[in-house]
Design a protein around this nucleic acid. Structure first.
Lengths: 211, 211
DNA sequence: CAATTTTTTGACCGAATGGACAAACGTTAG
DNA sequence: CTAACGTTTGTCCATTCGGTCAAAAAATTG
């Protein structure tokens, strides 16, 4: 007999859950959690509301599943920051990768931003646990680079914040960026321009001082 | 008694409208527009729902009034960016002022962020009009500094974006910042640390290259 | 094929929500 | 006192929304 949480998931269940999550990502990221309705998600997923609720019992279950997946993807670039390679190269790669994620996964970025903006009610423990540990660990790596005179001495935590802020800005504030740049400069090239600018800002700004 | 009610708005009306806007700022900035209810705002303002609706006919009227005021305040620092003073000093002042606004008016920042995140449905014309013009104008000022060799050559628009992103990050992503910094470093001092870091990043990153 | 299980949907429910409205309340002027 | 005006609230309404349920429709299995 099957238990309360059927581990055995049929082919249809797996597929439909994916379709729902994809639709929910679209809807949640543009309307926020409370601003989204199950009907909207169901329609975007091409099924009826009761049918959707057959796969996810509650609206919040969809959001939770989405958020849980997101975090793994989202932190992957930082995890790759390694103290093996050349510090400046490592930093440049990290900035590049984060900017690429803002370009290729803007919905995920907005979903995350929405959650944080509202006070992170559903992922607070994760921020104080997993995320803090990871950042602290990488801050140590960066501190090592500073001690070795490879990059300028500064606050590693705020350095990480500034990389997050500047790169995610191009996903979260995309409409503003495009509006300000206008039709000519606001096209696809904006990410290249941003990459060039950020690279210059961070690499020059973090050049080690003699002495 | 005559002339004591300019433009047909009594003293009580002015006062109560202020109370409501203050309450609405609190509620909207933490729950978003759709996530906020008139009842919540009314309770925060210390009055009944019908009474609130006596001062603002619709929920959206409150939001609109709030948003309109916000924009003036929000763009003031950039308007002050002047080509009279020393470029580096001007930039430092601008960064300082923006960071102070993130510290002192986080609710306003979140309200704005919420609006942009949702695609700026209510303020799009403003972004493409007033805001774009202002930024274009200031970009010219910055370009002048670059031509004069006062700061490094780079993209002025993305420079402005990066200042917006890094400073507003401390308001919009406040919970994440505090969670990552932890109880010790996440206290009131975090803004001083941020100011020090950002100053270093931008001033070093924008130092003019010889030649 | 029939039996059984999984998937889908129409109809429905209760709670929340934005908003309307008239009655009541308070204040001031005659 | 009354009349007039601005303010406040209890009550009500229509809609929306999250979620349930039973029963039909596919799909799977023996």
């Amino acid at each position: 007999m099957e238990g309360s949480t059927p581990r055995g998931r049929t082919r249809i269940q797996k597929e439909k859950r994916e379709v729902i999550l994809e639709a929910a990502l679209e809807v949640f990221s543009t309307n926020g959690f409370r601003g989204s309705t199950i009907d909207q998600i169901a329609e975007a997923a091409g099924m009826s509301k009761p049918n959707l609720l057959y796969y996810f019992r509650r609206k919040e279950d969809i959001h939770e599943t989405l958020m849980h997946r997101l975090l793994d993807t989202w932190l992957a670039p930082l995890k790759e920051l390694d103290n093996i390679g050349d510090p400046m190269t490592e930093l440049r790669s990290y900035i590049r990768r984060k900017l690429e994620m803002a370009r290729d996964y803007p919905r995920e970025s907005r979903l995350f931003a929405n959650e944080i903006l509202q006070g992170a009610p559903r992922i607070m423990p994760m921020l104080e646990g997993e995320l803090k540990e990871l950042v602290d660990e990488k801050a140590e790596v960066i501190k090592g680079w500073m001690r070795a005179g490879k990059i300028a001495r500064t606050d590693p935590w705020h350095l990480i914040f500034s990389i997050w802020a500047t790169t995610q800005h191009y996903a979260d504030f995309d409409v503003q960026v495009r509006a300000v740049l206008g039709p000519d400069r606001g096209g696809d090239g904006r990410f290249e321009d941003a990459a060039r600018f950020l690279e210059q800002l961070f690499l020059e700004g973090l050049k080690p001082k003699a002495g």
